[in-house]
């Protein structure tokens, strides 16, 4: 049949929590098949007790990321055919606690996001005038470069600094902080600067660049963090860190 590829994929899937193990499944190979399709096939046809997470299936929501053959990927946009002919090994995202099977606990990831003050804070009093944001200003362009993050935690799972340093806020949280530091409307600059100057902040980054290498949206958290480092260094010299 046209579009059908013969054969099966041998899939090793992590089952259980931290102390679990791998289960093996055989899944029919199909054309344009994504890794998420494979997981869904297992859950629907082979083992309904398999736990995993997804929502949009089109690379927008950031919920289906897993460790695929040792590296973090968004599974809904990862084609099995592009991974070669070998077996698939699927695990939950690294550097996060495991809940069950392929579902990792993202609470630490988002807690650090909050710790980096990764949310927009409007000024206490609403201004009479609208903030002017020239699209071609340097600050806006810096913010735009990092704004498309979907919060999938692939960068966090790929980051060895996050693995080695439990305080490290991680690439996604710092990238978000950088976009906000470049938002002229935001009113939390000094507090956020103090948060990212802490021991686990931007200065903990050693520019491994694994975040940049693996970001499914092709963002560059390493560059964002470098921007924060310059900001923190300048503020330290000026005595502006709270």
């Amino acid at each position: 049949m046209r579009g059908m590829e013969p054969g099966t994929i041998s899939v090793r899937v992590w089952r259980g929590r931290e102390d679990g193990g791998f289960a093996e499944y055989s899944v029919p190979r199909r054309a344009s098949q994504t890794v998420l399709d494979v997981v869904t096939f297992i859950q629907r046809k082979l083992d309904p007790t398999l736990a995993y997470r997804y929502a949009c299936r089109v690379g927008m929501c950031g919920s289906c990321a897993m460790t695929v053959n040792g590296r973090p990927r968004w599974t809904c946009r990862t084609h099995v055919a592009k991974l070669g002919a070998g077996p698939l090994t699927l695990e939950p995202l690294a550097n996060l606690p495991r809940i069950k099977d392929l579902a990792a606990d993202l609470a630490p990831f988002f807690d650090k996001w909050a710790q980096a003050l990764g949310r927009f804070v409007p000024p206490a009093e609403s201004k009479a005038e609208f903030a002017e944001v020239p699209p071609d200003s340097k600050a806006r362009q810096a913010a735009d470069a990092g704004i498309e993050c979907i919060g999938c935690a692939v960068c966090y799972a790929a980051c060895d600094t996050a693995a080695w340093n439990p305080d490290y806020l991680g690439p996604a949280a710092l990238n978000r902080a950088w976009t906000l530091m470049n938002d002229v409307r935001d009113a939390a600059g000094p507090a956020r600067l103090a948060a990212i100057a802490e021991a686990g902040g931007c200065s903990a980054c050693h520019s491994h660049q694994s975040c940049r290498e693996h970001c499914p949206k092709n963002l560059n958290p390493t560059a964002s963090i470098a921007g924060l480092k310059r900001m923190v260094a300048k503020a330290a010299l000026a005595g502006d860190i709270e």
Partner: peptide
Amino acid sequence: MNRPTRAQSHRAHPAFW
């Protein structure tokens, strides 16, 4: 803590080395 049990191929790029 959760670590990849297979080859750590997320490191397979020059900047890490």
